[in-house]
Amino acid sequence: MQLKADYVNAFYLATQEVFKQMLDVETELGQPRAVEDMLAGKEANVLIGLTGDIAGSVLYSYPQKMALEMVKILSGMEMEELDVFVTSALGEMANIISGNAASFLEKAGLKCNIFPPQIILGEHKTVSVAAQKAIVLPLKTNIGEFEVSVAVKNQTK
């Protein structure tokens, strides 16, 4: 399980770093849990596919209020709804976080490429990822609580 912890950690560290850098927001990690299905558990979700030595998916799941607040911090403007502008900014942030996580993994000798982000709006939708289990990282911030879930179906190294 050591290797699994490593890749989950790469996503956690990248999330923490990018939130701090882009939003000036600190993230506090709650108790990670293993689940059978990856669930888009909140209103605004970004799914990114992973391929390479690590193949699977990572899902960033935000409550609507937090998603709007994130884009408000980035733009300095009030955001009213989860429109294409807002979800595209969230998608790009998820892309940046996942790219950074992939660089961490690469330094550890694991090749990992990422696919473009997919936006999933609406709560409690199961995401089909063909992985046996997903690890959910609950994260607390002063602008809301969100989740990063990582599901890896195979690791070839």
């Binding site: 990018v18 850098q21 882009m22 884009v71 980035l74 733009s75 429109d83 294409v84 502008f85 807002v86 979800t87 595209s88 900014a89 969230l90 998608g91 790009e92 942030m93 940046i96």
Partner: peptide, 16 residues
């Protein structure tokens, strides 16, 4: 709109 969102996030990340 999609381009606007991506430009925003990219600019902040790159400059910050």
């Amino acid at each position: 709109k999609e381009l606007g969102g991506r430009l925003l996030a990219w600019l902040v990340y790159h400059v910050a």
